[in-house]
């Protein structure tokens, strides 16, 4: 896949008198690992809900995988994968049952699901655990599995909302290697994180401050532009410059 995976131009979303996303313009290239950062309440979640077809914008334009966020939201949902720390898999279903459920939801045939299940379990080295209930797996495994399930229907873009929260430092790194693996196959990865070392793992970053996209660039560029030694410092300077106290988006 070549070209552009996500385009946003002047994307805006208001809730009553509050502008949660304020004229945001950026693009994400196909196959890129794009990090989307911002303080709590800066508008990240609202922007992600628009880009995943769950919420219509108030004004501006955006397309995801070539589909329009106003008119083609169902097509967007079919073209993307999504995982978050909060909603991932069903704890009371087994590993295989979860995979089959998501495969069926995405309209894959039984034979395709079976083949991809075997492949997925082998890649994750979960072959022995296929019939275990997901609730019994350690958190890091759940998250690795949830990521692979989000890719089951081979979406062009996958959205990851804080995928590694609370995960041990080694498993967190294994998770990022899965991300690199998917990006290497051409999948575009759109990821949020509160770990600033993970911000460094992204090809490019967009940083939201009070509804606006105040910085866009590679980690290296952003550090140079802000004369900062780390992404932590860049983030701190940006967020301190414009964040309103108190209100959630």
């Amino acid at each position: 896949m070549t070209g552009v995976a996500i385009v946003a131009k002047g994307l805006t979303r208001r809730f009553g008198g509050f502008t949660a996303v304020d004229a945001v313009t950026f693009d994400v290239r196909a196959g890129e690992v794009f990090g989307f950062l911002g303080a709590n309440g800066a508008g990240k979640t609202t922007a992600i809900r628009i880009l995943t077809g769950l919420l219509a914008p108030s004004s501006g334009a955006a397309s995801v995988a070539g589909f329009d966020v106003y008119r083609e939201r169902e097509a967007i949902k079919r073209s993307i994968g999504y995982m978050s720390q909060r909603f991932s898999l069903y704890n009371d279903l087994t590993v295989r049952e979860n995979i089959r459920l998501y495969g069926t939801i995405y309209g894959l045939s039984a034979s395709v699901i079976r083949a991809r299940t075997d492949n997925l379990l082998e890649r994750l080295r979960l072959g022995e655990s296929g019939s275990k209930r997901v609730g019994t797996l350690p958190l890091g495994w759940k998250q690795k599995l949830a990521f692979s399930v989000a890719l089951l229907h081979q979406p062009r873009i996958v959205f990851l909302d804080e995928p590694t929260g609370g995960v041990d430092p080694v498993t967190r790194r294994q998770f990022w290697e899965l991300i690199y693996g998917a990006a290497g196959q051409g999948t575009t990865v759109f990821v949020t994180t509160h770990y600033m070392d993970e911000a460094e793992y992204c090809d490019r970053l967009g940083i939201m401050v009070a509804g606006r996209l105040d910085a866009l660039g590679t980690p290296h560029e952003l550090k140079e532009r802000f004369g900062a030694g780390s992404m932590d410092e860049v983030f701190l300077r940006l967020a301190r410059s414009g964040a309103p106290a108190g209100a959630a988006a």
Partner: peptide
Amino acid sequence: TTGVDAVSRR
């Protein structure tokens, strides 16, 4: 500070 952004954490 779990789930809290880097600035609020600091």
